[in-house]
Design a protein around this nucleic acid. Sequence first.
RNA 1: GGCAGCGUAGCUCAGUGGUAGAGCAGGGGAAUCAUAAUCCCUUGGUCGGGGGUUCAAAUCCCUCCGCUGCUACCA
Length: 574
Amino acid sequence: MTRVLITSALPYVNGVKHLGNLVGSMLPADVFARYQRLKLGADNVLAICATDEHGAPAEIAALEEGLPVAEYCAKWHEVQKRLGESFHLSFDNFGRSSSPQNRELTQEFARALWKNGFLEVRTTRQVYSHADKRFLQDRFVIGTCPHCGYDRARGDQCENCTRVLDPTDLKSPRSALSGSPDIEVRDTQHLFLKQSEFSDRLRAWISSNEARWSPLVTSIAFKWLDEGLRDRGITRDLEWGVPVPDDIADGALKGKVFYVWFDAPIEYIGATREWADARGTPDAWVRWWRMPEAGDVTYFQFMGKDNVPFHTVGFPVTVLGANEGAAHPWKLVDVIKGFNWLNYDGGKFSTSQKRGVFMDQALELLPADQWRWYLMANAPEGSDANFTWEHFAGTVNKDLADVLGNFVNRILKFATARFEGKVPEEGAPGAAEEELEARLAALIASYTDNLEAMHFRKACADLRAIWVAGNEYVTVAAPWTLIKTDRAAAATAVRTGINLIRLIAHLSSPFIPSMSHAMLAALRVSDSHWRWTGDAAAELRHIRPGHVFDVPPVLVRKIEDAEIAAWQERFGGS
RNA sequence: GGCAGCGUAGCUCAGUGGUAGAGCAGGGGAAUCAUAAUCCCUUGGUCGGGGGUUCAAAUCCCUCCGCUGCUACCA
């Protein structure tokens, strides 16, 4: 038996995520997980996500909201978890990087790296603010740019002249948090991960995956390797995070925490442990993550391109370094799927500027499936993609309402009017049905291949072609004409059409699970236990004559021009 | 500044050496079961400009223009 492990890049806990965040990792991970469950069975698939909760941004956002940081994170974790469920994201666990399980694992990884000699203590100089009683990250120090004189330049880069800066370059520096000039440069000690020692191994590993990963992922990874890996600080002078254990460096880093980027990917494992603990099988995580128990697992990671360096360099170094001399090495990722950006009407989605459409707002407008379909059919796979309201409405109306929704409606209404709401038994499949079966077999094969390759746009095009093939069949079979002269032939067309709805509902379920469920419910057919198949002929004979069904309300209502205009107005698109 | 990616039909995008493709929009036809929803056919592009390699270039190389991202303390 083969098993599949899927992780989505962790959304930062800092507020509601926008559609760009959704389509860049969580949504495709869910679609892929749903497909794999249909193929392998739910027990052989594990899909993991979590909120990424540590780091200075969470601390500062909590201050702004007037909440203790732990409460702040708990609150926004719940919000994100609920929104994910509302989007039908079917993660086996949506965890928290601040969990005790992740704390334990992060410390375990750090101890292994320390023991293996891949961590060292270095002294760095950092800005400390007396007023804020904390060390400031470079970008939280502001002052006058020495190059252009801009008086609100940040310590990492001047936004005015774009030059890269060091905080000590700034004239009249002050804290961006309190505005206080009472700051000083202090020595502080940090743990550094010796990434540079892994260059050759990483290059060989990435090269070996070049054929399977996309150019987006490999080109970013090679870029970092070509520029030369630098050792990376993995601790921070913060309160909120996983504490550095005292048994590393003889307690020299007491009171410091690990950098959010060190503990966040470890939460993939942490969230699996949370899952195992919650279901009362605390050892169940081992067979997904430790070799040789996880030898039959293929591990897929989904992420936006900003995350690729951390998943091709940072986390692999953590894993490889901890694995040296280990009896049960950690599972390394097999396939990385990266996404470009989804832009909003020509500009960037922006959390800080509230530009674009956010997950909670989207669901106020339309059901999740409409968004899921649009986003996946136009996923930013090959290059950055662009969201516009007109394109969105056009896609939803044409694909979901006209092609799919109307297909279901026209068959069930006709069958009810002419065959009393039961699957008719007369007639036998003929030329039209054979043609349909052959067409479906070819389309399903292509659809499956594209899902396997995680080519989601192409998979959506195939799925849509399957819906079109359904309409094509109905048009050719024309039961409304046959019913006048050959009731048995009309019955065959109706029976085939109803079975086709069932097959289409199952095939569509990874992308539009709610609509799929509604179709199957109307047919009074169960949506559990169905397995992925290319056997269209058998599927089209599944529902027996005499079976009773319902005509559901319109599956997808069309978006009206007035709504598009109103939404453009409300969200600021053109 | 450096690095990377992109620039293909009105729009959104496939296509990495062998006679330019899909969906939408536009045009024509068929059908009238259905959410006026469908199905078929079809118009439309000197593949950003220029130069080069090749029997052959959207595809490889150079250059210019435009857009985007990254640049290691953003997460």
